[in-house]
Design a protein around this nucleic acid. Sequence first.
DNA 1: GTCGATCATATCGTATATCATTTGTGCATG
DNA 2: CATGCACAAATGATATACGATATGATCGAC
Lengths: 241, 241
Amino acid sequence: MANEIPETETVTQAQSAQSKSERAYSYIKERIENGSYTPGYRLVLGQIAKQLEISVVPVREAIRRLEAEGAVTFERNIGAQVAMVDEREYFYTMETLSLVEGMATSLSAPFVTPLDLVEARDINAAMRDCLDHFDPHRFTELNREFHAVIFEHCPNPHILDLVHRGWKRLAVLRDSVFGFVPGRARESVEEHERLLQLIESGAPALDIELAARAHRTGTLDALLHHQANQAHHSHPVNQGR
Amino acid sequence: MANEIPETETVTQAQSAQSKSERAYSYIKERIENGSYTPGYRLVLGQIAKQLEISVVPVREAIRRLEAEGAVTFERNIGAQVAMVDEREYFYTMETLSLVEGMATSLSAPFVTPLDLVEARDINAAMRDCLDHFDPHRFTELNREFHAVIFEHCPNPHILDLVHRGWKRLAVLRDSVFGFVPGRARESVEEHERLLQLIESGAPALDIELAARAHRTGTLDALLHHQANQAHHSHPVNQGR
DNA sequence: GTCGATCATATCGTATATCATTTGTGCATG
DNA sequence: CATGCACAAATGATATACGATATGATCGAC
């Protein structure tokens, strides 16, 4: 329309294209994930609103969304704080994830095409490279892509949604609770190949499910063993109100 | 404190004890569950706010909560409407429920006490009675109690939460999509007993899980068969905006 | 008559303001 | 010195108001 003020227009549209509550959402979420907001950190509505130069209403909404995802806890007339994470919480998430990923894999298996298998193997090869060059960040990224190639065929959107929720939750938990387990990554890559063979050969659904489940459980076990072998280091407790 | 106005006090406290957003939440939810708000029905903020004599802000929050639970869908600058339900939706929920109930059962099994078994069998007996007296409502209630006796021991709160979500969702779906399947209830009671025997005998976790899974899947299969045998009746389509 | 543009209306999104609740502080009292 | 009460400050919860956006209607051009 009015070409004279394209920039202002664009900016205005960009701002409204992403709602303020979404901005607040990603703002808070990012800070939780990168550790700026440590577990237990109190999220004060007015404070965050001022930082983002918006009102408290969208901030409130963002926090409620994060609450629904389990990233923050919320109490009426008290306020919100970043959800506490401990070994149990991590364990619960992994266990649940193993369950839903297992089912998602077995449900998807019949619909996986030969082309998908090629793509998955390419990704897996790239993951191998990451091991050699020690690039854990890219490794994690590729790992997600690998499973996404399979899961995109999942006929049950609810289960797929649960997988995605689990991944999100894990993103928050992993870095703040646990580190990287050395040997596990290589093992993981090999399990991927075995998983692909099962899918390729049209193995029974339960076999595939349990294999996929074990894939996730294996990571959990590795972490637990790894931690047991490490010196017991307690995590700093967070401030209350 | 002031005893002169106890009633007003009580009312005021009762109102504030439950936040307005919660009132809106249960108000909308109830109407969805009892069918006043049919799937596709458009939830207009101002309209509901006026009915409840509150402002739109808490209504909005309630709707976002319901969205997170999957009871309503929400689009930016468009609004909310009661989530569409169809056979697929029902199927997805049942499949997911079979998954999480199976795991919840096998995880709980080691912690089920002899006393729990007695209680569970009592409930199951009561369910048998319901069959004779044809009381499907009470039957459903008891069925939930039966599983609750076992699930209360579930060590993974995330999985338990998923079970509860599934139940909630089912409460919305069942009545609006499907009816009651005659033969299945009696079968269900027998499966309960078999499930208890598995738990009692300390069967392998996977056996218990699959048995519990099949218990739910059985209901689904029964419904599908039942429906296939019935004349094809299409459900009325819902109004858009 | 049909298609497209413009405007009106409805509704959502957010800011600001006010009320309610909680929490902390200080004083008084035992 | 401990305890409890009263008051104040901080913060959450909600109301109201206004601006933004989408949908539907009206009107004009072809």
